[in-house]
């Protein structure tokens, strides 16, 4: 990467990418052994595995750019809530299987567009990570979209549950498209697109899937924000970190 780039902004951008996959991967991994059918247990574990793998790549790079001698593991296991930069959507609790898959689709749809753009990044490392992640994401988004459609257009009960999941989650979607100074710096350096510019493609994709699923997108949903800027997380994140970081916190400095 060119030395002229604002390294703090680049590091923030990388944290946003890596924290999204870390927190979502963690949430999905909470399902282990408890899915409605065996095939779903396998698919959820696979999704979690891919997301944690992507986390490793994003946070490795973030740590490198930071240049403070921290590792990806240090970033994942030794930061507190205020330093996390994931969108609020991914830290929300799993709820039922429908809510988990709806959250997954709303994220996957965004990631499919974002990763597509990042494959044209001026930063070679970002390009490489996006290329690998996009391949995995193509499978995730196909699967989560199919499940949302299947359950939305399934029985009366499954339809009702999926509509409730969408109504609950949709106010957390807007944050994915917020732009700030960090994003402006990334656009200027050619590293990443302006998030606001992804909205049209996203709405088209999500609109198509929700129509097939016979689900109604909430109109004028409120936008909950604060995750990607770190100014306001939900209460859920702290509990997630308590679990995820416990060993590293209780037995500091060990090798595992």
């Amino acid at each position: 990467m060119a030395d002229t780039i604002d390294r703090t902004a680049l590091q923030q951008f990388l944290l946003r990418m890596g924290d999204n996959t870390l927190i979502l991967g963690h949430r999905v991994s909470e399902w282990c052994g408890h899915a409605p059918v065996l095939e779903e247990d396998i698919a959820l574990a696979n999704t979690a595995l891919d997301l944690i793998g992507q986390t490793q790549l994003w946070l490795d790079y973030a740590a490198e750019v930071e240049g403070a001698g921290r590792s990806a593991d240090d970033l994942a296991f030794l930061r507190d809530v205020w330093d996390f930069r994931n969108v609020l959507l991914v830290e929300l609790p799993n709820g039922d299987f429908g809510q988990t898959l709806m959250r997954q689709f709303l994220y996957d749809a965004w990631a499919s567009i974002m990763l597509g753009r990042l494959q044209k990044s001026a930063d070679e490392r970002v390009r490489e990570i996006a290329e690998k992640a996009a391949k995995e994401n193509a499978y995730h988004v196909e699967r989560s979209a199919d499940t949302v459609v299947g359950l939305g257009d399934g029985t009366e009960e499954s339809h009702r549950r999926m509509q409730a999941a969408l109504d609950y989650l949709y106010p957390y979607v807007g944050e994915l498209f917020e732009s700030d100074a960090t994003d402006a710096a990334m656009v200027e350096a050619g590293v990443a697109p302006d998030p606001a510019g992804l909205r049209e493609d996203y709405d088209a994709l999500v609109g198509r899937v929700m129509a097939d699923a016979t689900l109604r997108l909430p109109e004028k949903a409120y936008v909950h924000r604060g995750g990607r800027s770190g100014t306001m997380h939900t209460e859920h994140l702290g509990h997630l970190l308590c679990t995820m970081q416990w060993l590293q916190r209780a037995y500091p400095g060990c090798r595992w």
């Binding site: 944690i52 593991d73 995820m244 416990w246």
Partner: peptide, 30 residues
């Protein structure tokens, strides 16, 4: 058999350990 190991997936101490354990539990389901 997924359950006793699933019990530690959310508390795995490193990203790598978490991935290895996830892959293992996924194998068992397979």
């Amino acid at each position: 058999g997924q359950l006793p190991e699933g019990n530690w997936i959310t508390r795995a101490p490193t990203l790598e350990r978490k991935m290895i354990l996830l892959a293992k539990v996924q194998d068992e389901a397979g």
